[in-house]
């Protein structure tokens, strides 16, 4: 770019030579600029990732003195026959799918409302961002206060005496509500931005045909919003399946493992029981599942779009 701008003359042999030298200088410059960021990423991110994948095929223990040896697919076999893994996997899927789905529906509704010219929407707009601004640990603690069996407001309002987070059948729905509350803001903001980018002319065109609000929503808003919806639901799904802090604070996976998401399961295996190899295989399996679900979803969406 610079070369053509500053030297409009046709490239004579020496000029061409200079340009090649400039190119190699540019490449060198780029590497020098990248280096400070590259070193920590390679050392503490790419390296551990590859190390972690390798660990999944060993019997590594998370202790100082342990002879680690290669065991092939033994960890995978153990994982696939472990009942507590499957129950954790099932809970993780229920959690991720329902939180993502409910988050999306709630956020879409709120985004549509905020896109209208309603009074007090400023209040809702500010409130919709607050959960985003809160540390996950504080969100967890706050909802613990809401659900508290004695001092919580929920029992007081409903007139019940339920220990929400310790009840076998209610704990999972209870944390799903918290998950929806936590993740709704991002989704709302993204959908609202998408709504504001839908060209007004499209609505005006069908208004001439006398289209009602539902038809406008189904025939214009939703199709126009689709790329945004696909992107944000995919991201939400990944974030939700990888959720840890929120649920750790709320229930620590209890009662009786009813809310033990895969990440909590892996954490316990790795840092309480110190089975590093086994936990790595669990992490690897979850990564494969996430990529597969995501790939399938995106592939179907793309095929439909054609």
């Amino acid at each position: 770019m610079t070369a053509t701008a500053t030297r409009p003359a046709p490239p004579t042999p020496p000029a061409r030579h200079a340009r090649r030298r400039r190119f190699s200088r540019q490449t060198r410059e780029m590497w020098v600029l990248m280096l400070p960021a590259l070193v920590p990423v390679l050392l503490f991110s790419v390296g551990p990732l590859l190390y972690g994948i390798a660990l999944a095929f060993t019997d590594a223990r998370n202790t100082r003195n342990h002879e680690t040896s290669f065991v092939g697919l033994e960890n995978l076999g153990d994982l696939l026959t472990a009942e507590d893994f499957w129950s954790s996997f099932r809970i993780g899927m229920i959690w991720a799918v329902s939180v993502t789905g409910l988050q999306f529906l709630a956020a879409l509704g709120l985004a549509l409302l905020l896109n209208q010219d309603l009074r007090f929407r400023g209040v809702a707009r500010v409130l919709a961002v607050v959960p985003w601004a809160m540390p996950p640990v504080v969100i967890g603690l706050m909802w613990k206060l809401v659900y508290h069996p004695d001092a919580g407001i929920l029992n007081s309002v409903l007139g019940t005496h339920v220990n929400w987070l310790a009840d076998f059948s209610l704990a999972l729905p209870a944390i799903i509500v918290v998950g929806v509350w936590t993740g709704m803001p991002q989704t709302t903001v993204v959908l609202l931005a998408g709504l504001q980018n839908v060209p007004r002319e499209l609505y005006e065109a069908v208004e001439v045909d006398g289209a009602g609000r539902w038809r406008k929503f189904w025939n214009i808003t939703l199709p126009q919003l689709k790329p945004v919806i696909v992107a944000i639901t995919s991201l939400d799904f990944v974030w939700n399946i990888n959720q840890f802090g929120l649920v750790y604070v709320l229930t620590q996976g209890g009662p009786g493992g009813q809310t033990r998401l895969p990440m909590l399961f892996a954490y316990e295996e790795a840092f309480r029981y110190r089975f590093a190899g086994y936990a790595s295989m669990l992490g690897l399996a979850m990564a494969v599942v996430v990529l597969a679900v995501l790939g399938l979803y995106l592939w179907r969406q793309m095929r439909e779009a054609k």
Binding site: S45, G47, P48, L49, Y51, G52, I53, L55, N62, L235, V238, I241, N242, F244, P262, M263, A266, Y267, A270, A276, A279, S280, L282, G283, L284, M286, A287, V290, L291, L294
Partner: peptide
């Protein structure tokens, strides 16, 4: 953004 942290945090 996609990778589970647990896979990285152990190593």
């Amino acid at each position: 953004q996609v990778f589970p942290f647990i896979l990285i945090i152990i190593p």
